[in-house]
Design a protein around this nucleic acid. Structure first.
Lengths: 137, 137
DNA sequence: GTTCCTGCAAAGTATTTGCAGGAAT
DNA sequence: ATTCCTGCAAATACTTTGCAGGAAC
């Protein structure tokens, strides 16, 4: 994610382009692993960027609200975060707690087509997300 | 879920068929709404069954481990629980935090067939769960 | 200059743990 | 008899909040 794009995106959402927020989003995109708050802070520490826990939490909440980030939750306690990008799904291994993005236009089309035909009474579908549970080898 | 069946299931898993556990699983099946711990305790209170928070948490963790219950997590903080039954998916409305089970053999078959053909390199699929996000009306 | 961000410490909520007594096997 | 469950209170883990100073607009 390009820094200037990101700044624009912040401003479009009425957010100031402050270093804290920028570095948080950059950390999440660079880490890739759907990091926890702890992992984000550690990453920034390694980068010699100090940022307090409270600031990270505050920034994360705002960014989720503005749909720049998204929460990812597993059966474990800690919330993980990812940068919102194209429509994607997750490969998840409960044992290692590893999560990978899974992008597959074909399956999207199949599901979209299926649910266009097969309506669910009383429910308006906005998005479909698949969680593919298994093991990495 | 029948009480005797449940007791058998407990014993098969090396768990004692104690009242606490029985009433918790019954509460979850009767509540249907993927209840939180608080909702489970409130439900039991109404039933004049007192049970301490710690006991509920301990029981829930054991039952999840033994695969009699399952955690259901949303972007909100509180963990919700459901009784494990047939393979199903979730309709989820973030606004109302309402979750409904969605059972659809047809979509299971479509996905199964699709992923039998289309392998994901380095990943062994065990289960596929769809989260259908939208709004109830 | 105004509004919003940042950090610290304190508070809040959800969940876990240790231990002593009690119930199921 | 043994093993495991139950409840209480205390502890822990994660996240939020209030406030004062500082940075972006």
């Amino acid at each position: 994610m390009d820094t200037e794009d990101l700044k624009l995106r912040f401003r479009k959402n009425g957010l100031k382009a402050v270093p804290g927020r920028l570095s948080i989003v950059k950390a999440i995109t660079e880490l890739k692993n759907h990091p926890t708050v702890e992992e984000i802070i550690d990453f920034l520490k390694t980068d010699n960027k100090h940022i307090s826990t409270a600031t990270v939490y505050k920034a994360l909440n705002i960014l989720v609200e503005k749909k720049i980030l998204k929460k990812v939750r597993t059966e474990k306690d800690k919330t993980r975060y990812e940068a919102v990008q194209e429509h994607h799904h997750h490969l998840y291994c409960p044992e290692s707690e590893r999560i990978e993005d899974y992008i597959d236009e074909e399956v999207n089309e199949i599901l979209e087509k299926y649910f266009r035909k097969k309506k669910i009474p009383g429910f308006k579908i906005e998005q479909i997300e698949i969680q593919i549970i298994g093991r990495f080898r």
